[in-house]
Design a protein around this nucleic acid. Sequence first.
DNA 1: GTGGTCTAGACCACC
DNA 2: GTGGTCTAGACCACG
Lengths: 129, 129, 129, 129
Amino acid sequence: MRIPVQINESSAEPLYHQIETQLRSLIVTGQVAEGTLLPSIREFAADLKCSVITIRRVYQDLENEGLLRTRQGTGTFVTRVDTDDREEYKKQIVLEAVRSLLDAARSVGYSPEELKALVDETLRKEERK
Amino acid sequence: MRIPVQINESSAEPLYHQIETQLRSLIVTGQVAEGTLLPSIREFAADLKCSVITIRRVYQDLENEGLLRTRQGTGTFVTRVDTDDREEYKKQIVLEAVRSLLDAARSVGYSPEELKALVDETLRKEERK
Amino acid sequence: MRIPVQINESSAEPLYHQIETQLRSLIVTGQVAEGTLLPSIREFAADLKCSVITIRRVYQDLENEGLLRTRQGTGTFVTRVDTDDREEYKKQIVLEAVRSLLDAARSVGYSPEELKALVDETLRKEERK
Amino acid sequence: MRIPVQINESSAEPLYHQIETQLRSLIVTGQVAEGTLLPSIREFAADLKCSVITIRRVYQDLENEGLLRTRQGTGTFVTRVDTDDREEYKKQIVLEAVRSLLDAARSVGYSPEELKALVDETLRKEERK
DNA sequence: GTGGTCTAGACCACC
DNA sequence: GTGGTCTAGACCACG
């Protein structure tokens, strides 16, 4: 199975982190179903033109998070997680970003109203794209 | 003058970045007035118990952004900026956080409605504190 | 004959090792009698839904230990061992676990008394189950 | 500071795991005090004649466990943990070994009495060494 | 075939 | 100086 991950060469974000973020979101949104056998580290590395070590790190980190399960000699699978856990997982990811937004807003003295207006404005602009 | 900057040792955020963010917000919100002579690099470093190299970098970065101005033999001052520029500056800081929030929301498949609900919920929780 | 072996998918322990340990203990406790003809490699593999290579390795390892004996064209049998040898065998298995427990205890600085207390406590908890 | 870690070249146990186990026990027993600045990964690697990557992995794993704290550009420190947490930590390490001992004993049909006798016997032998 | 460990060596970010 | 990321390539263990 081909996993749709895009690498941004020019970004300062570490490779492994870009891949992790995208793979994580593919999993929690169900675009890569539970039980799926992921490509082998060698295959995926060749596909993304990066080192096997980088992919190994991605798989290992996501395994530590409980999203993947690896068995030597067999391969790496997407873990089965119940739906509530998955929703909770998604919420945590967004909540972290919300909190850091509120921090930023507070640091420059934005009121909740100004903040909401700015969020709405940005959302409208995104829609038109 | 004592600059109220708090360092969070246990954060993964680099030291120089923590200090920059806080000093920047003190300046654009006017809590540190334009024209203010900031502490010397050594003094500030001693105050925050960090390396002079770190403070040097902070001053340099903010000077590159146009918020500070260093005069040989005199010290580092807060630049005069007109009010519109300052407002624009504040907006940019928040906008960046908004964008990264939208990225996070998109990556887990949150709709704009779900996202706004989560922001509102978090704002209400913050108010009650 | 059906050999009662349970595979734990979620364990980090290699498949072949899980099977070996269980089969070994079935033999030394006499639950699988001496002289018994074990299932063929293919049959056992199908039964456990694992690879024939894995079962091959299990039979080979236990044959090297002297517990099994393979005859070309006939199959794999449980070897006859005299009672003393069997008792010695069981003791060795437990002794190995005892030693690794003592290693663990020593590594964190547990005294023999603390260790025995912890063993007793765990045994009592097990009994109540 | 010189950290007393012994590597067993001929063991099948992975290098990184040997080092981890020993460093962990040095920390939880207080032989390496909290707050200690550990050797840099390069220094430690040279000392143990292994790759910096191996040491990096050790430090990272123990950081994930919460025993170490790493700051880029500064070094790696032993985290401050309260005494109760540390005792709990030690207990968990030993408990795991106790459980695997009980598993082994049960698998060969040892009674609790036989097991305790064997543990006592082994402890006495160890003492005489 | 798969993943797991380890190497030597490079370049970058941080203090 | 420190740690953080990434590379290419090797060898071993598992299925």
